[in-house]
Design a protein around this nucleic acid. Structure first.
Lengths: 224, 224, 224, 224
DNA sequence: CATGAATGAGGGTTCATTCAT
DNA sequence: AATGAATGAACCCTCATTCAT
């Protein structure tokens, strides 16, 4: 395409971009609507209206309601994974890991979990508890969790402070506890407007550290 | 009701009993249907059919679908509370409490939680995650949890092995951890058919004991 | 069931009968609506309204719109087959077949075809031309036609007046001509209000007789 | 349009031609789409895409979907008429008509009918059976048929071999039989992949000849 | 009290058509 | 002229709920 022609089509890229923007607007609208009214109560008309569009437009970007849900789920899962990676990278950079003991090494996970739930605990709940979860998305979720367990198991094995009889089980407990308690804490305390995330994360780290060091005081053998 | 009238209804008690039986049958049917098909998928016709009745009859016992749900929730909550009471009574009776250390004193709570989820994890999930929870029922749930936290806090304070900076927070962590992890463990492992509840409860007790003793060693063996 | 009890359930049979009546009413309504507005234009709401019911009721008797169509088709096909049988039985009874020549033996088929189209040419058209014909119904239709061809072929072979090079082909031509021309004649002339079915059937019989006798003269009087 | 203006549009003719080409491309696309997906299933978006255009452009050439349908119908009808004319011209030219007998004089009509259906039986079916036929187009169709009947009636009257009591009726039968049977034959046998058009047309001519000669013997061999 | 046919608001989805670019 | 995103009326269907029997 000659550059002369290109000047006549200034709207091509913008058009695609505009498409992406509209898509994103719809997804955001869906997120808001689902969070507010639940999955069943959030109709496609609501979503379209919230996005400032008509139903018909919605269906030009998504084949059906469930597809929006699935995309929202995938996005949340991916975002969650990213946040863990980020936190780990940030923590693992200069010199951090070796210093500060086990508690410091657990922090990134806890912080990532908090990040994941803070934004919109209600949406998270709708997405992963209330809404119908297509098996594929469920599988993705399980896979992510399994990965997390494996990764954590590796860290536990390598950690000098850790002392547990069954590393794999301990890894599952660690992951599940972080995830579940964070979800629960934010879920139950957010509506009451009385959440103290620092206190929460400190306590959570304390619990896990105590658990993983075998309850031993001066922690020694990270035996396997 | 005047006694004169009562004499005209000699079958009153039986009638009331039959009523109660029918009501119960409907609730059980609802439980089965919800567990099998989810909340949205479990229609009133399904429930009536499962109970061997017609829809019309269903509406003579319950004003609407959500009322069944609410009652089911209440029943589950009550049953859960009962189970804790029972377990505590059983554990606390003759000589148990003082012996066996903290781990032994935590066991009843863990066992009660497992009891509560083992029966029908799917129904539990539908009731407390998928279905729309009327605020009143939610409030009831919160209240129960608060009560549990208060009770546990009392126990922790009285426990010689416990050493935590914030008893109330520790009580919340204890209750939440037991409840959440049990739910999660049974939920994710039941479908895979690989759940080892003994190992799970041992580990859970271990974790809580380590946490509550402040990571101090000397835990009594988590005998069972 | 004791006869005493039976008296308490006078509504059982009636109820089933009422069901059947309602079903039939819906089908008739569908027939009218389809005939008037075509398949696409005949909405389920129209049909329900025409039957004096609401949409919901319609869906208690038919799983979906196409099912009504299919049933209507099947009914028409079955009715068509019955009419041929009847006509043949009527014609073949006393002594008819051997007398009157080929023309007389063709008449029942022509008369049956006319019967099939006279009632509601527009509905017939909608059912078998406009509407989406599910493959199974199409197969049924083809089967019926094949059967007709086979039967007619048998008759042709046994007929002393018939003289054709390829009996099977002639049978197909006979069946197709009767069916197609009748459909066309009634379709195009009914709206104009100028249809003379006697003249038509006489001519049709004349044509087929001339064809099947190999164009040989001397046909016995094609009187009627 | 004033000539002054015309000079400003030097590309007028090319532009008009391009317009015509685009129109034609759209119509062809519509034909393909309708043939493949039926009338209801063939959306304007499908058609535009098939033509390599956007919906918006489609609506610059046609006011609405039905207009395309009507045009397609008209084109088919016109093409049909043309084919008859051609065939008659070809047959009636040098010496043909008088020789070969009635059968030979019927052939062109049969051949034209076959031509009309062979190309795309499915499209023909969609156009003239499945799709909603606007009354005007229907009228056109009737008119064409009437014309054909009149023409054929003239031929029959002039034909030495023809012997029928009612020429007009015979003409209608002739036209209707050719058209209907050809449609039916190709329609039912094309999908089965077993159509022998020569055998079919021979038989059709045989039937009509026998009919029109009043069943008189002595038909000239239906040579071809 | 039981029944189950009837109701109808409301939901998801489609697609002919329009219009700003 | 071309584009394709946007529109929204209309369709099919579901299901909680009612009511005549």
């Amino acid at each position: 395409m000659p550059s002369a022609t290109r000047r006549l089509l200034p709207s091509k890229l913008p058009r695609q971009r505009r498409s992406r923007v509209t898509r994103a607007r719809l997804l955001e609208a869906a997120a808001r609507v689902f969070a507010e009214r639940g999955y069943a109560g959030g109709t496609t008309n609501h979503i379209a209206a919230e996005a400032g569009l008509s139903v018909g437009s919605l269906y030009q970007y998504f084949p059906n309601k469930d597809a929006m849900l699935a995309e929202l789920m995938r996005a949340h899962v991916a975002e969650g994974a990213d946040r863990i990676t980020e936190r780990l990278a940030a923590a693992g950079s200069p010199a951090a890991p070796r210093h500060g003991g086990l508690a410091a090494r657990l922090r990134p996970f806890v912080d990532a979990a908090i990040d994941n739930h803070r934004d919109s605990p209600r949406l998270h709940q709708v997405l992963f508890e209330e809404a119908p979860r297509p098996p594929e998305v469920l599988a993705e979720l399980h896979e992510l969790e399994d990965t997390a367990v494996v990764v954590v198991a590796g860290l536990l094995r390598a950690d000098p402070d850790v002392c547990v009889p069954d590393v794999r089980l301990a890894a599952w407990f660690t992951v599940a506890t972080i995830e579940s308690l964070t979800h629960r804490y934010i879920g139950t305390h957010a509506t009451r407007g009385c959440l103290d995330l620092d206190a929460f994360s400190d306590e959570l780290v304390r619990m896990l550290a105590a658990y993983l060091t075998g309850g031993a005081a001066g922690m020694v053998s990270p035996s396997r």
